[in-house]
Design a protein around this nucleic acid. Structure first.
Lengths: 168, 168
DNA sequence: TTGTCTGCAAACACTTTGCACTTTT
DNA sequence: AAAAGTGCAAAGTGTTTGCAGACAA
């Protein structure tokens, strides 16, 4: 989603905490700051790894015993956070995986098809190539995604090919 | 469409037709050359655009009136063709999209989020970057996928934003 | 004949939706 | 009080699977 453009743009970026930014987004949309939304943003902001909806749901339930959120609410809120520009969504092996996108530098990923780990890397060459190619095709590039699949160093040493080997 | 360029590739590659190659694959695996598998490979080989399972299923039904294949068979055969190296699979908007991978040069894509068209491009710089990054991380790269999302020139001119605007 | 394949229907995983009730504003 | 949000259960997608009958080798 390329919505959520700039409340801030060029520089500011991290003037607001993710929580604040999300509240601003909600207010601007006439949406409400509920217990569930707050809890979800707080939790997501506290962790830094990639995660999927089911993981988040489980984590929330494990955390504050009584204070969870339902599956639909988790999905709905994640979609809002993507709209708000807090999270970036990508699809791997058929499920959506989220990562922080607020105040984080642009980057791409190495994806281990054995353990499903995502390793980040950044290369501005990639962006440069994307721009060049887009220009050649009169294409208005909005974003790009580069994923290099293979086997990570951990999985290479420990031959624990315990997981499914190939997928795209 | 930038599809369908040359069967002619680097060197050998296309010693066998896709059909022959598939038969070889099947035989090597003790699998059988059935009417359905033959029909599917033939049809796929005859077209050059990207397609998904449902499209293929529909096309087959439209073609030879009586001689179709069931949905499960189509899915099973597509998976085999990927294994056989005839097709490459990628996932867009939640559904699997296939493209030729036999005798075709490596390439990446521009993806129009408006009309869902895929435009191919190639850049060996991309491969170079992937290799470099993989090396840096002691990662064994097996493949990569670069998709630049945005709006294609056609959709830019005709403001027919009739389709869903954003997705990842 | 033998063992693989096919098609059907049912199962799947992940995600979304309709709706009555609850909560924020 | 009004409007939006929540959770539940149910419905959707796209894809896969168990199995009995059909078919290639």
């Amino acid at each position: 989603m390329a919505t959520a453009q700039d409340f801030s743009l060029g520089s500011v970026e991290t003037a607001l905490s993710p929580q604040e930014r999300f509240e601003e987004f909600l207010q601007a949309r006439g949406k409400r700051v509920t217990r569930q939304r707050r809890m979800i943003v707080d939790y997501v902001a506290s962790r830094h790894e990639h995660f999927d909806a089911e993981q988040l749901l489980g984590d929330l339930r494990r955390t504050a015993a009584g204070a969870q959120a339902s599956r639909p609410t988790v999905y709905r809120t994640l979609a809002e956070m993507v709209e708000a520009g807090l999270l970036k969504k990508m699809v791997l092996d058929g499920r959506a995986v989220y990562e922080h996108d607020y105040g984080y530098p642009q980057h791409d990923h190495l994806y281990c098809t054995n353990c499903r780990r995502l390793i980040e890397f950044s290369s501005d060459e990639v962006a440069r190539i994307c721009d060049a190619v887009a220009a050649q095709h009169q294409f208005r590039a909005r974003s790009h995604r580069l994923i290099v699949s293979g086997i990570c160093s951990d999985c290479r040493s420990s031959k624990s090919k315990s997981r499914l080997q190939d997928r795209v």
